[in-house]
């Protein structure tokens, strides 16, 4: 970088060069510093995966892929399989999405339109974001002591009149996959709402103006123009929410009922991978720890698949837009 100059430098030029060098080193230093931060995250992730994988090796070699299809979890004889947990994780997450996506998207649309003055919508938006700050153990306790008694008449009603649908075919108990799904919906609502709202708010104004100018009504504008335009942000928020729902631990362990069975009825207790790990890790024997970490690995892979799917969906729809 240094200039090859034949005439002797004047003091001013020397000053400039010193400053330029200083700035150059600062720039470079900052570059490497931020790069180190970014790499540290990636390295930590890889490290965690390797460490978990190493501890899980005894279980992986013993059970192999049969781990995913077996329904036995027997710490006494050290025979493990997590099909009921995989089922519970997916089903509770799907229930959560079915409830939270329409609700969250609705709230996001409402808050991003000018239906109400900002001094009303801002506190609402703020309150929804505060929801995300409630610790999950508090939500779990709230679920046990307030939500379950509150939902019981509703469950009884559903079972009595819709009991012919296998999904509601058993006598209701408080702790069930349905309860967990509803609580998870409550927990992921802030994620979906705030990200979708940000997306809708930050859309370029000419989209709305153009649609209006072409004679579209407000609903046509929202449904045909704004939501498709913000689709990638909305799907992104949903996938983030799905990841959160699948990985939720404490509330799941407190509300799902932790019974190691697959039942088509949503009113029966079930189990999720995260709740299994949370409840059994403390007292686990060594083989059991290996099996639990193998289960953790499976959960990570499930999340990875979800994220890849999200990427594919977003890419596909963006292409359609163009």
């Amino acid at each position: 970088m240094a200039a090859t100059s034949t005439p002797p430098e004047s003091p001013e030029v020397a000053m400039i060069r010193v400053r330029r060098n200083l700035r150059y080193y600062l720039d470079q230093g900052f570059y490497y510093l931020t790069m180190a931060f970014a790499l540290a995250i990636a390295i930590t992730l890889v490290w965690i995966v390797i460490q978990i994988g190493l501890t899980a090796i005894p279980a992986i070699t013993q059970f192999g892929l049969g781990f995913l299809t077996s329904t036995t979890w027997d710490p006494v004889q050290n025979i493990y399989g997590i099909l009921p947990q995989i089922y519970g994780t997916l089903v509770s997450a799907i229930i959560a999405l079915v409830v939270a996506v329409p609700l969250g998207l609705g709230i996001a649309i409402f808050l991003s339109e000018d239906f109400l003055p900002t001094y009303v919508t801002t506190p609402i938006a703020f309150a929804i974001e505060l929801l995300a700050a409630i610790p999950s153990v508090v939500i779990g306790l709230w679920g046990i002591f307030i939500l379950i008694p509150f939902l019981r008449p509703f469950y009884t009603f559903v079972h009595r009149y819709l009991g012919w649908i296998p999904l509601f075919g058993t006598e209701p108990r408080g702790n069930s996959l349905l309860t967990l799904g509803l609580v998870l919906a409550f927990m992921i609502l802030p994620l979906i709402t705030s990200i979708s709202r940000q997306t809708l708010v930050s859309l370029p104004p000419y989209l709305r103006q153009g649609a209006m100018a072409l004679g579209a009504t407000r609903w046509e504008t929202i449904l045909r123009v704004l939501i498709p335009a913000g689709f990638s942000g909305i799907v992104g928020s949903i996938m983030l929410a799905l990841g959160r729902a699948m990985g939720e631990t404490m509330a799941a362990a407190m509300l799902v009922g932790n019974s190691n069975r697959i039942n088509i009825s949503l009113l029966e207790p079930g189990s999720t991978i995260a709740s299994l790990i949370a409840s059994q890790f403390g007292e686990a024997g060594r083989d059991q720890v290996a099996a639990l970490l193998y289960a953790g690995l499976v959960l990570m892979i499930l999340s990875l698949i979800v994220n890849i799917l999200a990427e594919i969906i977003i890419k596909k729809f963006q292409n359609v837009e163009r």
Partner: peptide, 25 residues
């Protein structure tokens, strides 16, 4: 064992979880 493969039932997290199950159902 300290945890077993239960043939029936609902699992509660901790003494308080089991107590809540009993009190509310």
């Amino acid at each position: 064992g300290t945890s077993v493969n239960w043939p029936v039932g609902v699992g509660g997290q901790g003494n308080e979880g089991v107590a809540a199950q009993i009190q509310q159902n």
